[in-house]
Design a protein around this nucleic acid. Structure first.
Lengths: 329, 329
DNA sequence: CCGGAAACTTTGAACGATCTAATCCTGCCG
DNA sequence: CGGCAGGATTAGATCGTTCAAAGTTTCCGG
């Protein structure tokens, strides 16, 4: 293995001082053209790469972004995080940042981890997913002045910090419109109990679209925890009512899959639309609302690096989902 | 924000020298009990955390492990990587390491990324997933003397480097035995074209189990690319033969899902078993072979940190999968 | 009470980059 | 031809840690 190439090696090779090499890297405009060219050649020739640890010691910046990887609770939503992570890594890479993972069980343990990561690695920023009402984590980070972005709106105070989100209401609105366009008039919604920002948002899209079409949404919605079995139960329920729906929009693919089972079990012909476009949806041919995860990830990185590199952008990004048509609607 | 706490702050506070604090952290046994206690109190009181960048500069070790996150090709396998990543992060954490992500498209681009990562962050090691026959990446890493572990055996040279893998043959053998125990005699296998180590391994488990039971596997297997549609096509094919199978073991959940569709389409009652226990399998009630991903991740970290911290373990770990029984077998 | 080994602690340098401030050019004007 | 402005370049200090070597204390046996 050849000797380690440091900035001093490059400087010697290009017959300039260390600082000039540093300038070529960090402030090229202050170096004369001819000198810059010579230095760049030396860099290329030697395969020099700036040591981040040394740079970080001086500048206090690590070019590292931390993201939490969750314990894959349902499994069905795991792949969403997966795609998001990939997009994040790719965009961060392009912006000269790297992604570091961490896990934590529980909010206070997570905050301890922040402390750890900041102390040991001087992380530049955090990307949080799945924030809830009154999340203590965002408060802690904001209090310490640590840059961060959340994927998901802070429902209680939308202006409080930078976020990126997907317009869930627009997604369910699209789904509902699709069913309306196909001639459906009794369109149900199966979602989560009131109180979760995301769930309420998705329900709202369905409700307003129905109302706008002059239809009455009352009695056509059901709430439950997420899960295939729950979806199936509620859909059987709906199908058994006197005015059974001919189509249903669901807050998740799990619920939709359950609904689909119920429909098939009673040999009905109701249309079903899910949410998240998970692999499950693709596998069983379920029409579903797809979140632009790569774009969301890119926006997160953009917001964060914008703050870090001193050219901040609009700190609130709301992306539009798209309906992926398959067999069920 | 309080001033940064460095080793010097702690030293002053505990009335010892910097080096003694360093010794308490890295070689506690050479410090007298009473001194150590005093230093540890100071550390706790001040909330001191060793700066990794500075440590790394001196030691050349970053306590960072790199893992590739793939572009989620199929989507169905995405969640496997996801669970693996989570396990990796958790175990690495416990061993005092952190996980850094990277992506790359194509082997040579990936090698360039290695160079980048090693040069800039002095990564301690790599975890590779999905290695193929004659992988240039492992050769490059080995040539540079960079520690790494692969999740997946190097089929062409099993002794060449440390790896962790799941015994696919044992998995399909379990699946086949299960079907035998349930009275099935004509048990088919749908897998991938010959040549992929993983695929061949999974087929072998089925074949040897059938043979051991005195049954003839000939004519009962089909090969195709991965995908639901392919699985469905081949299963229809099998069901249409004079001696149609009453059960089928598949090399993946995608194939199994397709097979299941075919079975239902022709109103047959054949049992179906998939592989990987993806969320899809859980959602549709498909019996599937489950890989112990958390254990695999833990083994990867153990192997890697073992090499790094100088107490190497057996460099080849083969884990046993488990059959998850659901409705289809 | 002293010599000396063992146990423990401290000092100074080094890792590889950037910051600050000082020095060196170069061209231009009086 | 000297002086000077301004850009280009360089020398030295510094970030927080660990290594190597030197210094100090403690403990025993003679």
């Amino acid at each position: 293995m050849p000797d380690k190439v440091t900035i001093a090696t490059v400087a010697r090779h290009a017959q300039v001082s260390r600082q000039t090499v540093s300038n070529v890297l960090n402030a090229p405009h202050i170096v004369r053209d001819e000198t810059r060219r010579r230095v760049q050649e030396a860099i290329a020739e030697l395969g020099y790469r700036a040591n981040q640890a040394a740079r970080q010691m001086r500048t206090g910046r690590s070019r590292l972004i931390a993201v939490r990887i969750e314990p894959t609770r349902d499994g069905i939503n795991g792949s969403v995080l997966d795609r998001f992570l990939h997009g994040l890594t790719e965009t961060a890479d392009a912006a000269g940042y790297r992604v570091m993972l961490y896990t934590a069980t529980g909010d206070d343990q997570e905050i301890a981890t922040y402390d750890d990561l900041l102390g040991a690695y001087e992380l530049d920023g955090f990307v949080l997913t799945g924030t809830d009402h009154g999340d203590p984590r965002t408060a802690w980070l904001a209090g310490r002045g640590v840059p961060f972005v959340t994927f998901g709106r802070p429902w209680d105070a939308p202006e409080s910090h930078p976020w990126v989100d997907v317009d869930g209401a627009a997604g369910t609105a699209q789904a509902t419109s699709r069913l309306l366009a196909n001639g459906h008039r009794r369109i149900a919604f199966i979602g989560w109990p009131e109180g979760s920002g995301v769930g309420d948002d998705r329900r709202a899209g369905w409700r307003t679209t129905l109302t706008a079409a002059g239809l009455d949404p009352d009695g056509l919605h059901r709430e439950t925890e997420d899960g295939v079995a729950h979806g199936e139960r509620l859909m059987r329920d709906l199908l058994a009512t006197p005015e059974a729906p001919t189509g249903v929009v669901c807050a998740s693919d799990s619920l939709a899959l359950g609904a689909l089972k119920a429909v098939r079990a009673v040999a009905a012909r109701a249309a079903v639309i899910g949410f998240d476009d998970t692999p499950v949806a693709a596998a069983v041919g379920l029409t579903s609302v797809s979140q632009p995860l790569a774009a969301a990830a890119a926006s997160c990185v953009e917001l964060l690096t914008g703050v870090l590199d001193g050219h901040p952008t609009d700190p609130h990004v709301l992306l539009q989902p798209a309906l992926v048509l398959r067999h069920t609607a």
